[in-house]
Amino acid sequence: MAKAPLPLDQMTYEQALQELENILTALEGEARGLDETMGLFERGKILIQRCQDLLDKAELKVLTLEETQAKSKSGEEE
């Protein structure tokens, strides 16, 4: 939690899950202040919601690399 977290709407599922893991490790570990704890808890809830949204809205994105065939055809190897 040292580095500034990404904006929520830019977070991938994996990143959100990773931060959630950190938060839970903190919450389940040493005792800390009420404000900090409540902050972590709220953040955890938001992250879970983010994950939930990502799963709910997930739609497979497919991109195609254009140049691979062209390149190999012209024999280039960069």
């Binding site: 599922y13 990502l54 799963l55 997930a58 739609e59 497979l60 994105k61 497919v62 991109l63 195609t64 690399l65 691979t68 065939q69 190999s72």
Partner: peptide, 17 residues
């Protein structure tokens, strides 16, 4: 399969014969 199992991922296709 990916669409059904895990639409969360992104796919980049590198076409090849």
């Amino acid at each position: 399969t990916l669409r059904a199992r895990c639409p969360l991922v992104e796919v980049v296709l590198a076409p090849a014969a």
